[in-house]
């Protein structure tokens, strides 16, 4: 049985695309057939984060308008043969696709894939409406900042009015040193305020910047962020995975292996 998951946040720049790339790659790593759909028409980015920008021929709008078949538009990942990307169109806008068309597109993919991940654009307008239309569940990405949490709360309200099976929260860019000295809201603070189950927390880690530069998601790699994303994937699959040591300290071994890898 396949599941359609929308990755959304309301606010821009909190890490939706990075989360989509890592969760999608992680699910493929765990043996699932996965397709990532970039629904940010006009501002596509998921292709770059996945390192697949040079392979785009057709896009989401081409599929919807019937300019090509679905198979022609899907790009196979470099590392995982069961991971595909349906890129967005760069020269069109959000009104090129309707919620009804998105539902049909997603339903067509259900037969082929275990997980269909939709990377939602920022905002609550048509792009958002399109992305959530065919979704079964949602991952809401937020950071421990007033503006991001406020927008997440608004998104939760809008999603609750729809018919999603499940809504989970990912708290991104946590800086444990700042939480410890009281200059950043903690995971507990955010949970208390938003009252949505937290499916994972991701540290503000420079490894993420490095992996985005390289166009290779870091899920599963040594280090707190790579493991945090893999744990989120396991929890999506229904496993109960304990949360990582929240102080984010690296073990000596992971430090060494990280240094060796970069050398």
């Amino acid at each position: 049985m396949s599941e359609v998951i929308v990755v959304t946040s309301g606010k821009g720049g909190v890490g939706k695309t990075t989360t989509s790339a890592n969760v999608g790659t992680g699910l493929a790593m765990l043996g699932k057939r996965v397709v990532l759909i970039d629904t940010d028409i006009g501002l596509r980015n998921l292709d770059v984060v996945m390192g697949l920008e040079n392979r785009i021929i057709y896009n989401l709008v081409d599929v919807v308008e019937g300019n090509c078949r679905m198979k022609q538009a899907l790009i196979r990942d470099k590392r995982y043969p069961d991971l595909f990307l349906l890129p967005s169109a760069q020269t069109r806008d959000k009104s090129s696709v309707s919620p009804g068309q998105m539902i049909k597109l997603v339903d067509d993919l259900r037969e082929e894939f275990d997980y269909i991940l939709l990377d939602c654009p920022a905002g609550i307008e048509q792009g958002f409406r399109n992305a959530i239309a065919g979704a079964d569940r949602a991952l809401i990405v937020t950071t421990p900042e007033v503006s991001a949490i406020r927008d997440a709360d608004r998104i939760i309200g809008l999603l609750e009015a729809g018919d999603l099976r499940r809504i989970d929260l990912i708290i991104n860019r946590i800086r444990i040193d700042m939480v410890r000295r009281g200059d950043m809201m903690s995971v507990d603070d955010v949970m208390d305020i938003l009252s949505v189950p937290v499916i994972g927390t991701v540290p503000d880690d420079e490894d993420i910047v490095i992996s985005t530069n390289q166009g290779e998601p870091l899920v599963g790699m040594n280090g707190y962020a790579g493991q945090a994303y893999l744990n989120i994937c396991r929890r999506i699959l229904g496993e109960s995975v304990p949360f990582l040591n929240p102080d984010g300290s690296r073990t000596l071994w992971s430090r060494l292996s990280f240094l060796l890898k970069r050398a």
Binding site: M178, V179, G182, S186
Partner: peptide, 19 residues
């Protein structure tokens, strides 16, 4: 005052009025 605590308080009030 720790700024995290300030953020938490501002946010709580903000969400009450938003909701």
């Amino acid at each position: 005052k720790n700024s995290g605590e300030i953020a938490r308080k501002r946010l709580k009030l903000l969400l009450i009025s938003d909701r």
